[in-house]
Amino acid sequence: MKKNSKPMQNRIRARLADTVDISKDIILDTFLIRGTGNNEIIIENYKGILEYTENCVRIKAKPRCIKICGNSLELCNISDDMLCITGNMDKISFTKNQDGDDE
């Protein structure tokens, strides 16, 4: 019963966001990605950096991890809730969190 409560909660929250016309990332407490071409990506509301190399950046976020692959990747601007990644990006994928927290 408890297992099904979170998706239900999310559905209600999404509905509420649609009804009152509020940004979903606020209501659902999820990440927001903005990109400019394949050279710059800004991720808001992330939790932390899991892995950072020149070719791959893995970012912890809710509900899934974000994996960005490419080359010459740099963490251009970084703050507590916002991360700007620059470089030549080839692929963005969302993977399950390692701790199994798939919400």
């Binding site: 932390g48 950096i49 950072y52 963490l75 251009c76 601007n77 970084i78 703050s79 507590d80």
Partner: peptide, 15 residues
Amino acid sequence: INICLHRGMYIFDIK
């Protein structure tokens, strides 16, 4: 990097 950010330090241009 994570610890620095959580402690409110301002770091940028990470390579």
